[in-house]
Design a protein around this nucleic acid. Structure first.
Lengths: 250, 250
DNA sequence: GCAAAAGTGTTGTCCTTACACCCATGC
DNA sequence: GCATGGGTGTAAGGACAACACTTTTGC
């Protein structure tokens, strides 16, 4: 077929068109828009999925809760901006972070058009208790929160749905648990986030067959019943077997 | 636990903080960035996955191929901007279009910082032959294309990977076929895009069991062998059963 | 000793895979 | 009549779901 040849077609028509030489001038002619990043930072505590929020400092949203965000600095890649927000607010480096979606409704910000790029972050609440009381920064139950500033509820809902889907494809949830965890904790995590009930025996079988849990030999402490074994996530083994991993199905 | 009470916590500290009253001034203080949308428009023709490209009109990318894109107009939502680009270039409304990812490397555009939001679009090449010859707009084999302007190769690769994954979750591929298609065409589509080989009988069984193909009663024409039946996609039935749909696995 | 959760195996069912032969059409 | 792909059914194996009892610890 003729079309197959297009990739090596000579540049016969370039000379007929006017090419743009001054790319700076070109870019200058584009309209410009303020850009922010907003981080939906999930944590898991007390058998609930939590999200880290701050009180909005905008008068018209007085009392409402807001995602952690900031505008993107000049020449700052958006991933870096999101990491910066995380670092500034939680003091944590090295957390799970992924871009989810860009929100662009013209009236989503009352002060004029502002685009925002939503990021989803997962972290273990135990490591971050120290800074929580400053700045009205608090963990909120994802299920209960409803009154949020801007379109932040919509952004949070989008990220939650994204997380639910994503958790079935990768063992992301482990980012929400402490380094050592029991299988019960792991199962609770899946049950709560996916809002389903699972059979304990089948759940154990499934995860053991995936073969990336390391038995630490240690046991739970401070539980009013028989303590369970504690496991660690074998990140290397997961990376190796990643190709074979096709996801979880419940 | 105490944290459960946070959602109904009184606004005791609001009075101590300075609230922002002038939101316009706030937004004005943000740095502004030019935003574009880029559409990765896939088509399926001659048993190949194709992508619709235009010759770059920027001198330093002379001869290279470029995605179809444009800057976002003032107060234009990005989805609308992407639709506008599609409409202007292909004359088609009502095509599949979805936001994929935002690209923000500071040096991705030689004329200065420009963010771009990538969209993936799927359309049936048969309907768009008319406008293809204008403007150096052409369909290119996704596998063969390599020399592209800006970071458009990376964007295309990202959208292609996204499509591969997404096709297993939803019957997206049907957007790439004509309204009436044979099962052989459908299987070719999956085999080519996912780069796998499938058993013909099992493929048929799988799709019939999904129960959203309507037998038109018509048959292929112009084939040098026994003609196959033609089917249509039952969009309504798919919508109804969407909840039960958990994806395809090969 | 009692309450509460940990830990463990088996069976049936369903879904997936592998595989071979006849049929309709164009030439 | 022959080449090409269309159309169909079955059997074996593997994955998943359902299910109950014993063990260990705290109190």
């Amino acid at each position: 077929m003729l079309r197959d040849d297009l990739d090596i077609m000579p540049l016969h028509t370039d000379s007929e068109r006017t090419l743009i030489k001054d790319v700076y001038k070109l870019v200058e002619s584009y309209p410009r828009v303020p850009i922010t990043v907003d981080c939906v930072i999930f944590g898991f505590d007390n058998n609930e999925l939590k999200v880290l929020l701050i009180r909005s400092d905008i008068e018209m949203y007085k009392g409402k809760w807001s995602l952690l965000g900031d505008f993107a600095h000049d020449d700052e890649e958006l991933d870096d901006a999101a990491y910066r927000v995380l670092r500034e607010r939680t003091g944590m480096d090295d957390v799970y972070l992924e871009q989810v979606k860009t929100f662009s409704k013209p009236n989503r910000h009352p002060g004029g058009r502002v685009l925002t790029v939503a990021y989803c972050s997962l972290l273990n609440t135990e490591h971050h208790d120290l800074k929580i009381l400053a700045n009205e920064l608090h963990w909120h139950s994802v299920k209960k929160i409803c009154d949020m500033a801007f379109d932040h509820k919509e952004i949070m809902d989008t990220c939650y749905a994204w997380l639910q889907k994503r958790m079935l494809e990768h063992p992301l949830g482990l980012n929400l648990l402490p380094e050592k965890f029991s299988l019960r904790e792991l199962q609770n995590l899946y049950e709560v986030i996916l809002d389903i009930k699972l059979d304990r025996r089948n759940f154990r079988k499934k995860f053991f067959s995936m073969d990336f849990l390391i038995d630490t030999g240690e046991y739970e402490d401070d539980v009013p019943h028989r303590p369970g074994r504690l496991y660690r996530f074998d990140y290397d083994k997961y990376q190796q077997n990643k190709r074979r991993w096709t996801g979880i199905e419940f």
